[in-house]
Each structure stands twice: as structure tokens, then as C-alpha cells.
Design a protein around this nucleic acid. Structure first.
Lengths: 152, 152
DNA sequence: ATATAAATGCGAATGATTTGCATTTGCATT
DNA sequence: AATGCAAATGCAAATCATTCGCATTTATAT
């Protein structure tokens, strides 16, 4: 749980009060290797001797989402998953075995998106893209070779 | 409500019984211009004098998803939305105003995905991509110019 | 130190999805 | 066409994530 001062700044910038709960949520998301659900966050904070109510978690996730401090991520789950927003426009590569997320810097869709918009008569304002597979470690550890992924 | 015989074939192929309810669900999805929720489907069938229970809709959507007769679609909604699967690999361009869906044939991610996998040491098995914007008609009708989309 | 709006916690409400179980139905077999 | 049986259905109850109302607490500007 570091990074606290920069989180405080962010909150202040967005006109939100700086509370233990908000800093806690941001710290947990910051430390997480994978996107988390509201319940994941609630559980981790409470395990850390950091009592917080589940509805406070939900309320703050909504607010932080609106303020774009965090993003929703994860196609594979019917529950919403959240992660710290690390850059303006980002895409992910996600390991289907360990759920690790690699953030992809470049975006191959800018040009494509412009062309497609012109062709279809659309004003395209944004896109979502996520890639899925198995990371080096999981391939080695679990001998994964040719998994067909289940139910997106 | 046509296309019934081809639906029957599909069901038979997947070892599912051919029931009025299943054919109804597939017919509704076939006729829909946009992805539908379970409740949308339930409502439409009942309006069509086609009584069906909501749990039957849910059960069949799950089954059809597993058999890959249909796909889940739609980032913008916390409820699941379903659509007929029209081809092996498909992407969508979705109008944020009228929800119309245009299916995109080509995929700009094949090469990108191979390169990225090599670079990151991932075995990439699949990806998701959806584009969002405003269609010609909605731009004209509603004078949409520069909408920033809300909460993905 | 004080006032006050914003944030929190709690429990109850909501809404989507799932499940248990009795009944019905598709379909293979006589 | 009649029979048997597993699979499918309908219904109501259960579950699970998420939201809401309201009384209490807290961060911050004064």
C-alpha cells in the first residue's frame, strides 16, 4: 500500500474527498495483477484489517469509473471487473490460465477504424479490444498446448 | 418466422430436441436487428402469442451458447445480450443511438496478434473487438455530432 | 473549533439469473 | 398408432450481484 500520495492528488483533482476507503480501493487495484470485482476488493480490504462496506465499494467504483480513474475490463465474466486506468487508450492481453493482464501500448485499429467509418457511413467514436491466450509461464507449468477456450 | 427448417437441422446436429420453444428463440434472434437480452426474447415470444417461460429462455441460451449456435455481444450493458452466430469469426460495429449492428467481415488483428504473441511469449488463442459510433441515419435524424460516450 | 455537504455503513429492496421438482413432450422403439 | 423414457418445460422459490434509503460519521472550507 504505497502510491497513496498520487492517489490523493487524483482524487483531489476530481473533486472527491480523500477517505480511507477511497485510498484503500485504489491501493488494492494498484497492487492487483488482474482486474477485480467489487467483491474481490471488499474481501481484500477486510482481510487487510481494513473494514469497508460493500456498498461503499460499489458507490466508489461507479464514481471512479465516471471520473475515469479506473476502467471496466474482462469479457469472460458476467460480473463487472475493474482495474486502474494506466493510460488514455489501452488494450489488454489476458492469460486464460492465470488471468495475468499485459497492457498493450500500440493500437492497430486507428487506421482501420477511420477507413471502416468512411465505408459504412459511421462516425466511429471508440472501440474495445481484448486478446486472450496463455502466457509463457502457464504454458511451461501446465503444459498447455491447444486449449479451445470456453464460453466467452 | 421462417428459416425454421435450417434451425431444426442445427438443433438436430447438436443433439438437441426440436421444441417449439427452441425454434422460437432462434427465430426471434434471427429476425432481430440488434442483440437481445433473455428478457427481450421472452417478451417478444409472449407478444407473438407464443407462451414460453423465462427460465426456459435462459436454459436454452446457455445451451445454445455452449453449442455455439449463438454468441454473447455488447459491452455497454450489464445484462447479457445474445445474437445468432453468423460466421466463424466476427466483429461488430454498433450504433450507440439506435443499437443497430453492422457485422464486419475482415479482421485487422490476425497479423497483429501473431506478432504480439511472439513478442510477449503468449500463445494467443482468440480476441474480442467491437467498434462503437453513430450511423448515418442517426447522425442525420438526431444531429449527433460529437458525442462522448458514457460508461463503457 | 464549527458548520455543512459529502461519504459511509447498514439493512432492505431490486433485478437478473439459477435451481428444484413435478409435469409434459419429443422421439425412438415396438 | 401405442409405449417408455430421457430430455425439456413451467412454475415458484432461491441465489447472487448490485442499488437504494436513511441515520450517522467524516473531510474540509470557514
Amino acid at each position: 500500500m504505497e502510491e497513496t500520495s498520487s492517489h490523493s492528488e487524483q482524487l483531489r483533482l476530481h473533486g472527491q474527498k480523500i477517505t480511507k476507503q477511497r485510498l484503500g480501493i485504489l491501493a488494492v487495484l494498484e497492487a492487483a495483477a488482474t482486474p477485480l470485482t467489487a467483491q474481490d476488493i471488499h474481501l481484500r480490504l477486510n482481510l487487510d484489517q481494513f473494514p469497508i462496506s460493500l456498498s461503499t465499494v460499489y458507490r466508489n467504483l461507479d464514481r471512479m469509473l465516471a471520473e475515469e480513474l479506473i476502467v471496466k475490463q474482462g469479457f469472460y465474466n458476467d460480473k463487472c471487473q475493474y482495474a486502474i486506468k494506466r493510460s488514455e487508450h489501452e488494450h489488454s492481453l489476458i492469460c486464460l490460465a492465470c488471468r495475468k493482464v499485459v497492457t498493450i501500448d500500440e493500437c492497430p485499429l486507428e487506421q482501420f477504424s477511420r477507413d471502416l467509418g468512411r465505408r459504412e457511413g459511421f462516425e466511429i467514436t471508440e472501440h474495445h479490444m481484448e486478446l486472450y491466450g496463455y502466457c509463457r509461464e502457464c504454458i511451461r507449468k501446465e503444459g498447455i498446448v491447444n486449449h479451445a477456450p470456453k464460453n466467452p
